[in-house]
């Protein structure tokens, strides 16, 4: 018994070390979405490219799609834009844009100048849908399955590595089950 107590500090140190070591390398600013496994919240917002047209949550059903939250005020969105173009054009991925807390004129100039990777873009100047989706900073990219359920949320820039290692496996899984 006395021997055991001698080893107690070592034991505590090892357990603490394992727990703390597991936390190293995890980015605490990237949170898992609370909406994973839940359907996209209902919304009714205008189409960015067509102010007359209303869009709603049915837009995000029918096939596995990406929902990309962006704004012209967001520098990181500029960084990922070329890779979104690559996904849409070379990989044939269906991407819906959510233009978040932005203004229409700036957003249209952006798409004109840099190319438009989005099948449709939801215009959300007040950030209401963004709020319901739990968006806390652009860019964010959601994987939505064919029945309109959120499968995954990626916070930060999408690039080829994120695509290969993170998004593609989720999409394949969603396609397999959906």
């Amino acid at each position: 018994m006395k021997r055991f107590f001698l080893f107690l500090p070592l034991l505590i140190a090892v357990v603490l070390g394992v727990v703390l070591f597991a936390g190293i390398g995890k980015d605490p600013t990237k949170l898992e979405s609370a909406l994973v496994g839940k359907p996209v919240p209902a919304f009714s917002l205008k189409d960015l490219n067509n102010p007359e047209a209303e869009l709603d949550e049915s837009l995000l059903r029918g096939e596995v799609q990406l929902l990309n939250v962006w704004g012209t005020w967001c520098p990181a969105c500029r960084d990922e834009h070329d890779d979104l173009m690559w996904l849409a054009q070379d990989k044939g991925i269906s991407i819906v844009g959510l233009n978040y807390k932005d203004n229409r004129a700036d957003a249209l100039v952006w798409l004109e100048r840099l190319g438009n990777p989005y099948r449709k873009t939801i215009y959300d100047p007040k950030g209401t849908l963004g709020f319901d989706l739990g968006v806390y900073g652009a860019p964010e990219t959601f994987v939505i399955d064919a029945s309109g359920v959120v499968r995954y949320r990626h916070v930060g820039v999408v690039n080829k590595q994120v695509w290969q290692e993170t998004l593609l496996p989720v999409i394949n899984d969603a396609r397999g089950n959906g």
Partner: peptide, 8 residues
């Protein structure tokens, strides 16, 4: 709010 942003 937790439904949107999580328990975090």
């Amino acid at each position: 709010l937790v439904a949107r942003f999580g328990e975090f």
